[in-house]
Design a protein around this nucleic acid. Structure first.
Lengths: 257, 257
DNA sequence: CACGATATTGCACGTTTATGCATGTTTTAA
DNA sequence: TTAAAACATGCATAAACGTGCAATATCGTG
């Protein structure tokens, strides 16, 4: 692990936990306490954190909680996005949904990998601007701001003309009984339509979506072929989902910070 | 392996892994550490990555902000965008083209004004995310990266189903004789199609486009109903264009920076 | 083809940086 | 007050670094 990486790791840890215990981190990383103390000293000098006896705290304790929650949420989504992106093989045609998790997936598609991405989200399309080897097909429609995706009859019609290997679907609710659900009827309709156009539908579900049912049902859970979950998803739930016939994808090992 | 190939490989590795360890890469490629270090040094000098002890990391988000600031449109384009936006009256339906000038126009549409915007550019759609009172209709197609617009048969077909008051068109060449032109055939086709769907077509032409003819002609100049020009456009040219029957719009007075 | 100019690469050498340990000091909590 | 933990500092070692140089390959030109 590079020195700078370690410093970033320390700041991340601080953002997530709201605190750093020098000795604990040293043991976790297999380094001497001195090294961690030195890092903390330098980060404190740079104003990135507040040094205290035994470790470090955020500079502004007031926002610590809010930031911590935000960081956790985004960390989890990043993790899921990365795992989902690893499922995409060169040459495949994939449909990518809108939403923040899908956007993370998009960012994690290797830049030198040739793929075709179909999306009804302008945000996803813009994120793919730098992926020169990726062919991007956009599905038009009426922009639904909340999730920045196109919806409506035109979207459904355009969707009916395509065919893909994967559909990476984002939802706001994943429940064994209630199935996959979302908060907008038009969106639910589009998700259903896109799912029918792909050989396999993979759901991306960050932890806060699990066991939740939103107003509009997209389809039963077993109609999906796979699901990407966060590492913090309970084992029992993973087993339950597997029983329904879905392949469960979870980040395998620590890839570092 | 060629040197440039190796540099691309390094950037790709960085994009995929988010980190580069100099020694590890050197071993992987069967080269000396020195060579890799030299590459990393040069790439860092070019701003492509951030050099750290032991390897390299992606350019920090702080630098990304700097790049974003660099990308701001020229004064002239801002001015034209503002003038063009002032032509849009509440309630009107307007088609907005892709490109930087069109993006400036988009940003200058009043946030509290109710309009319908039709666009085939995901960038424009994203820029309108905060305009809650604006209804956005996206036209899909195959993404043409250079100008970040959708093109192709699907785009033309979808365009045929709409109707608008204005089409704000961006071009790369405006010449009295050669007419309106652009550098891509597909794009020219789309511009022509969109122009036919609007009651009035207004061309946006920053100074460097004037008197220039690009490869693919969109349509003769007199087929447009108006043109927005920069303040630095010669008076003679303005008169010539007016003679063709076009309304000429120029920023009226100093609105301050 | 011949020639010099230029670029690339690995090696040698001295310098800088990172890290862990020893030592003495400060802080914390009982 | 006192002992343990945490700390800062100096030092030694090893890794990573930059620079200059020589060997080699590539390019451009005549």
């Amino acid at each position: 692990m590079l020195t700078e990486e370690r410093k970033t790791f320390l700041l991340d840890t601080l953002a997530i936990d709201g605190r750093i215990e020098a000795k604990a981190v040293a043991k976790e990383l297999g380094l001497s306490d001195d090294t961690i103390r030195r890092d903390l000293r330098e980060l404190a000098a740079a104003g990135k954190l507040q040094r205290v006896h035994g470790g470090a705290l955020p500079t502004s304790p007031a926002d610590a909680d809010l930031n911590a929650r935000k960081a956790i949420a985004s960390k989890s989504k990043q993790e899921i996005g990365k795992t989902a992106a690893s499922l995409i093989k060169p040459g495949q045609v994939v449909i990518i949904d809108g939403g923040t998790t899908a956007l993370e997936l998009t960012k994690n598609i290797p830049k030198n990998q040739e793929n075709t991405v179909i999306t009804h989200s302008p945000t996803v399309a813009v994120a793919l601007a730098a992926h020169v080897k990726t062919k991007v097909i956009m599905i038009g429609g009426t922009l639904f701001r909340h999730s920045m995706v196109n919806v409506g009859a035109a979207t459904v019609e355009a969707a009916s003309r395509i065919r893909a290997d994967f559909f990476f679907m984002g939802v706001t609710g994943v429940d064994i009984n209630a199935g996959l659900s979302t908060g907008d009827m038009e969106e639910a309709h589009i998700k259903r339509a896109l799912s029918q156009r792909a050989a396999e539908t993979v759901v991306m579900a960050s932890s806060e979506k699990i066991g939740v049912a939103s107003t509009y049902v997209v389809m039963p859970l077993e109609q999906a072929s796979g699901i990407v979950l966060g590492q913090n998803t309970p084992m029992q739930l993973r087993k339950d989902i597997k029983k329904l016939g879905l392949e469960v994808f979870v980040k395998k090992h620590n890839d570092g910070a």
